[in-house]
Structures are given as C-alpha cells and as structure tokens.
C-alpha cells in the first residue's frame, strides 16, 4: 500500500491520473473501517486532508458550492438557512466525532444507498463538480448514482465540490434507524418545497439499489398543488392528497430484506415519512406565507 499526500488540488488530480485505482481518503469514515476490518487493501491511498479548499464553501446567488470535505458539523452549524434539508440530514450522520470528519464528498464517492446526504441532495437539487487532469464537469445529482455503491465518476476523477440549490422554501429530512443516535439508515426520506418553481422534489435513501427520487409522487403532488391553487392559497393539504403522495413514495422504493430491516417495512416507513415531511414543510410554508401576509 502506498500513501499519497498531495499538497494541492492539482497534485491530487495528477496523482489520481497516474494511479486511477487510488482510493481517495478524506474523513476516513468509510475507508478506514474497510481497512481496519481487512475488507479492502487498496494499492494507493490518496489523502485529501491537506487540500484546504475542499473544506471551504461559497454561498452564491443560486447555489452553495460546498467543498467535498466540508464536515457535516460545519454544514449543521453554518448552512442551516441555505441548505436546511442537508443540515438536517447532516445532524443524523453517525456521531459528533464522525460528523467532525465526514463530508458530502465521501457520501458521494462511496455512493452507498444508505448515505445520509443523498436524499437531501436529491430533494434540493444539486450538481457534482467532478474534476480530472482532463478538465472539470458538472454531473447532475439525478445522474450521479449508477448502481449499488457505484457512481458516474471516471477512474481519474475526484469530487471537488457539490453545487446545491439554495433553499427557496422549506425542506425536511427524516431517517429511520433502530437506535436514537449513531445508526445507519434503515431508510430515509428528504423533501424540499420549491415555491419559486412551484415544484416539490424528494429523495429516498436505503430503499432501492441507489438513492432515488419519488418521481411519480412528485408529479402527482405538483399537479395536485397546481390544480388546487395551493401555492397561492397556502391551504391545508387534504389527507387524501397526502395519502396518495405517501403511497406513490412507497411505490418508488425497490428495497431488499437485510439485517437492518425488511423490504416491506422500508416501503411502509418511506410512505409515513413522506406524509410527515410533506406535512411539516407545508405547515412551514403556510407559516411563512402568513407571516408575509402579516408583514404586508
């Protein structure tokens, strides 16, 4: 095993080009477990800790450019307003110690369906900034996950940052685990209201081979909200709409039975979380609307 310690992003890209099998290590929260338990013996470890810009973020007009190694703790503490869904998801990641080390880049690189950040990224809308010595490209989040623990990165590419749409409305995130902290998701659900485009986006974790959006549920809800004039009125979403949305979210799952839970439970729980997160975000939206009315 060789330990590569690039001092700059350019050196890191060069190293990855020279050794495409090199395994990037930043927070170490996935890679080191595999090494400690003898599950993996990479030829090269590519340490990204010395590259300061990976832990920086920029808040732009439309997007937040989030460095791949910005720790979850920093997201929780600093980006709650811009990225409320991801901040909530970050808070569910493992333990304080892990949140101090791990970042979204690691979640994306590992591309486990159980990664906590994925549903929030899918719901908010995001692009992955991938770079190699050949150049930089933006991969839409919907095209990023290609299979169980597989992603759209080329062998010589590294994740530089994630560009996440700044919230234009309420976002929520829920995760089921059989413990009240420090638990891998049995399944998870993210939901974001986008009042500017009058759309709702979702993300499902751990209930399909890859993180997925509940597209049929989104389409149904978008149409129902539009037809009922809900975005303007801020009226309460009726139980039948919420129920249909929840059922369609369940239907978007393609889960398996494993030691963490049954497929049937995962479908069921995703439906419950879909209904609840819709309720919470919509109440927040109505509250905001009312506040605005009051102010006007």
């Amino acid at each position: 095993m060789d330990f590569l310690r690039p001092a700059s992003w350019e050196e890191a890209l060069a190293a990855k080009a020279e050794h495409p099998t090199a395994v990037p290590i930043a927070g170490g929260t996935d890679v080191m477990v595999e090494i400690n338990f003898d599950h993996r013996r990479p030829e090269y470890l590519l340490d990204l800790n010395r590259i300061g810009e990976l832990t920086e973020w920029e808040v732009g007009g439309e997007n937040v450019r989030l460095g791949a190694s910005v720790p979850y703790t920093a997201i929780m503490e600093n980006l709650r307003a811009e990225l409320p869904g991801l901040a909530l998801a970050s808070h569910t990641v493992a333990s304080p110690q892990i949140r101090n080390r791990g970042g979204v880049g690691g979640n994306l690189g590992t591309a486990s369906p159980a990664g906590d950040a994925h549903p929030a990224l899918l719901a908010a809308g995001a692009e992955v900034e991938a770079e190699s010595v050949r150049g930089s490209r933006m991969i839409p989040i919907d095209e990023f996950y290609t299979g169980v623990k597989r992603n759209a990165l080329a062998a010589d590419e590294l994740i530089r940052a994630v560009h996440i749409k700044k919230a234009d409305g309420p976002q929520q995130y829920s995760k089921v685990g059989t413990r009240n902290a420090m638990v891998i998701a049995v399944c998870a659900f993210g939901l974001a209201l986008h009042p500017e485009t009058r759309t709702v986006r979702t993300g499902i974790g751990s209930a399909a081979p890859t993180p997925v959006r509940a597209r049929a549920a989104e389409d149904f809800l978008n149409a129902a909200l539009e037809e009922g004039g809900f975005w303007e009125s801020g009226n309460i979403i009726t139980p039948s709409v919420a129920k249909q949305f929840a059922q369609l979210a369940s239907g978007a799952c393609n889960p398996i039975d494993d030691v963490r839970g049954t497929a049937k439970y995962r479908r069921h729980a995703v439906g419950i979380m879909a209904r609840r997160t819709l309720g919470w975000t919509w109440e927040q939206y109505r509250g905001t609307a009312r506040t605005l009315e009051g102010a006007a």
């Binding site: 413990r179 009240n180 609840r276």
Partner: peptide, 16 residues
C-alpha cells in the same frame, strides 16, 4: 426531537 422516538433522525414531531 431528541426527546421523541427516532431522536435526532427527525422521524416524528409527535405524530403517532
């Protein structure tokens, strides 16, 4: 949420 079932995972705000 820390006082609720699910804890930090934010699964309920009292529902159910």
């Amino acid at each position: 949420v820390r006082a609720l079932p699910g804890g930090l995972s934010n699964t309920t705000h009292g529902e159910g």
